[in-house]
Computed example of a mutant assay.
Amino acid sequence: MKIKHILLVLVIGLLVIGVSGCRLPASTPPVTTPTEGEGGFPVPGDGTETMGLFETIATQTAAALAEGETGQVTNTPEPPTATMAPAQTQPVVTVPTNTPPPAVVPTAAPIEVPSSYTLQKGEFPYCIARRFDIHPIDLLSANGLSISSTTYPGRELRIPQNAREWPGDTALHDHPATYTVRANDTIYSIACYYGDVDPMAIAAANDISSPYNVTSGQTLQIP
């Protein structure tokens, strides 16, 4: 019984001590003033929240990087711009072409009017009158011929010196020119084809000698 009474007293005493301890005010820790480290950063353990500390450090670090020692913003220089060299123009080379010079056609000399003329193959009185710039009626009258008269090669005609001029242009076709000989052509008939061309001038321009023959398909220079 004594032991039980002793244990009961101890338990009651412990309860009293515990109740008294709970009623005493808790001791207030001393208030410390937070201090700043180098560069204005707060010292860890001064009561600042951990996330706030990290945000402050990040903000101050970014500001320090953006500012130089003088506090001015440093401009990053732009990279140099590459300059393209102007393209070189290739010189244009002109290749000369071997163009043959145009054929030179000799110019016919003025036709001298003879006092008489013998008809050749392919000629007739009207052709002779045109060639010598004589009126055809005057030529026919001087030789006792009419419009319906027939003449042949070898007939000699008298050429009047005081006759009237041919009525109109004595040329039948343009010249100088080239002419391709056809069947039965002679230098005399070709001269009559052009009207005011001397057959001897055609022979001289084409180096044709007596008897002044030409062949079909031959090309002649007409002065």
Rank of each mutant, 00 (worst) to 15 (best):
A191E: 02
G195H: 05
D138M: 03
T74R: 08
E69G: 06
T99M: 07
V214W: 03
F41R: 12
P199L: 08
P30Q: 04
M84W: 08
L145G: 01
N98E: 15
T97K: 14
V9W: 13
R23P: 01
N98L: 13
K121P: 09
T180F: 08
P125I: 11
A129H: 07
S115F: 05
I12L: 15
Y126A: 13
L65C: 09
L220G: 03
I12K: 09
E156A: 14
E123Y: 04
R23G: 10
A129K: 01
E69H: 02
E112H: 10
P114L: 02
H175S: 12
F132V: 05
A63K: 06
I12Y: 11
E123D: 12
P223L: 00
G21S: 12
I6D: 14
V95F: 06
G37A: 13
G45H: 09
C127L: 08
A103K: 12
A171F: 06
A108R: 00
K121V: 07
F54P: 01
D174L: 13
P153S: 03
I222M: 03
S141R: 15
P101R: 09
V113Y: 05
N143Q: 08
I128A: 02
E38I: 15
T178N: 03
P44E: 15
S189V: 03
T186A: 03
T99H: 05
G217H: 14
Q60F: 06
Y193H: 14
I137V: 13
Q88F: 10
E69C: 02
P100W: 03
G154P: 00
T89A: 15
V43A: 06
T89V: 15
F124W: 11
A204E: 02
T89Y: 15
P167Q: 08
P30H: 00
G71P: 04
R131N: 02
T74N: 07
A201M: 07
K121W: 04
S115V: 14
M51I: 14
C127G: 15
R182Q: 15
I17M: 11
L7Y: 09
T56D: 11
G195T: 01
P114S: 05
N162R: 13
T61R: 11
Y152G: 01
F132G: 00
N75K: 09
A63T: 05
A82F: 13
P199D: 13
V95N: 13
A204Q: 02
S27L: 08
S20P: 02
N98A: 10
I111Q: 01
P34E: 05
T215Q: 11
G71R: 01
L220P: 00
A183W: 11
H175L: 11
A109L: 14
T81L: 11
